[in-house]
Amino acid sequence: MFIRQDDFFSFSGESRTVPKLEVLAPAKINLFLEVTGKRSDGFHELDMLMAPVALFDTIKISVGGISEISLSSRWAQGLKSQPELPEPQDNLVHRILSMFQEVVWELHHQRPGICVDLIKRIPLAAGLGGASSDAAAALVAANQLVGELLTFDQLLEIAARAGSDVPFFLYRRPARCRGRGEIVTPLSSGQSLPVVLVKPDQGLSTPAVFSRLAEFASQSADSIEPMLAAFQAGDLSMIGARLHNRLFEPALAELPALSQLFVQLQKLDVAGCQMTGSGSTFFVICRHRTQARNIASRLRQMMTGTVLDTYTLDQPFGWAA
């Protein structure tokens, strides 16, 4: 996440200067996703390689005033025909900030009021981690605005309770994620990968896709090690050959129309393609950014939905005030 600090006037009707942070929260793709078992708490054991990509939601956040959370959300200007966003109380940003308030109260007897304006660009129900990234960004920014009352480990504990993908975004770089996603090992990348994101009009529910997993449970688990070696070496061809997503077939069972899109993408002369997360977005790994731009242009003419050319963030995407 990238953070820029400003001051602005008038918070909760008061005419005074209040610090405000503007945060860019990136999407992610799963270069590797294996399901290795099911836990007693109902979650699945996962082994994943995730990389952040340069597609960002924007969060404007400030603290002060009464001890409430005010959240507004909207799609960025120019994005048409997007689904309705969740009500504030149902948004993961609201949930994680409520957790943050409770921990700050328990440890420091303070309950800061928090005001958030969320501008969305990352598609919903897409497997791109937008809600988790927004939550992680809001958590870090709120903590920074209150003088970093909580340590990184305390933020990590809140993130793990909020959602499986949220801890990944706190580390700000590619990572191997295990457990249900909360065991994060940051990794170095050999290079930034040019990618094209292809999100069909229809999205997929993560619980619905996982519910179909038992239909394909007889398959043995793939090892992540060859992908990790290829990724850290920056071997584009080998990365493309090692792309893997155990949720791909359950997603096809849930949304059969994805099969036709995948067949089209496989015909492209690229390093590889795969679905990210529980879908419905596919990503295409290209050989260079010019190829990514050209392929994105062609795909926009061929299909409805969202097509974006971007790249993975291979260095820690740190914040600077």
Results as ranks from 00 to 15, higher is better:
81 S>R: 11
93 V>P: 05
71 L>G: 10
93 V>Y: 02
101 Q>S: 09
47 D>T: 14
36 T>Q: 03
86 P>M: 07
104 V>P: 04
79 L>N: 07
37 G>H: 03
115 C>S: 13
96 I>P: 09
73 S>W: 00
39 R>H: 04
116 V>G: 09
79 L>T: 11
29 I>R: 04
113 G>T: 12
89 Q>P: 00
34 E>V: 09
50 M>Q: 05
94 H>P: 00
97 L>V: 12
93 V>M: 05
81 S>E: 14
70 S>P: 00
76 A>L: 01
66 I>H: 02
92 L>P: 06
100 F>C: 08
103 V>G: 02
45 E>H: 08
83 P>C: 10
75 W>N: 11
79 L>R: 10
102 E>R: 12
89 Q>N: 08
37 G>W: 01
84 E>K: 10
58 T>S: 13
104 V>I: 15
75 W>L: 12
70 S>N: 08
74 R>H: 12
120 K>G: 11
75 W>H: 08
62 S>Q: 12
87 E>Q: 11
46 L>R: 04
70 S>V: 15
116 V>R: 02
51 A>Y: 03
86 P>S: 06
43 F>H: 11
51 A>L: 10
39 R>P: 00
106 E>K: 15
45 E>N: 14
81 S>Y: 02
75 W>D: 11
50 M>E: 04
115 C>D: 10
46 L>I: 12
29 I>W: 04
77 Q>A: 14
31 L>Q: 09
96 I>D: 08
54 A>F: 05
101 Q>P: 11
113 G>Y: 02
29 I>M: 05
112 P>M: 08
83 P>L: 10
88 P>M: 08
74 R>Q: 11
94 H>K: 00
65 G>I: 10
34 E>P: 01
113 G>Q: 08
117 D>T: 14
76 A>M: 04
96 I>Q: 09
84 E>H: 03
98 S>A: 15
56 F>R: 06
33 L>C: 05
82 Q>E: 04
30 N>F: 06
99 M>Q: 15
95 R>D: 11
63 V>F: 01
43 F>K: 06
104 V>Y: 01
115 C>Y: 01
86 P>A: 10
35 V>F: 03
29 I>D: 09
120 K>R: 06
89 Q>I: 13
108 H>F: 13
94 H>Y: 15
65 G>D: 04
71 L>C: 11
65 G>Q: 03
107 L>R: 15
118 L>I: 12
87 E>N: 06
31 L>W: 06
86 P>T: 05
49 L>P: 13
105 W>I: 06
38 K>T: 09
65 G>F: 02
90 D>C: 05
115 C>G: 05
76 A>C: 03
92 L>S: 10
71 L>H: 03
62 S>L: 07
46 L>H: 05
108 H>T: 08
87 E>A: 15
46 L>D: 01
107 L>W: 00
104 V>T: 12
60 K>N: 07
93 V>N: 02
57 D>R: 05
35 V>L: 08
115 C>Q: 09
112 P>N: 08
89 Q>K: 13
91 N>F: 07
62 S>I: 04
50 M>W: 04
106 E>M: 11
49 L>A: 11
29 I>K: 04
66 I>G: 03
54 A>V: 08
115 C>H: 06
101 Q>M: 07
82 Q>S: 03
75 W>P: 12
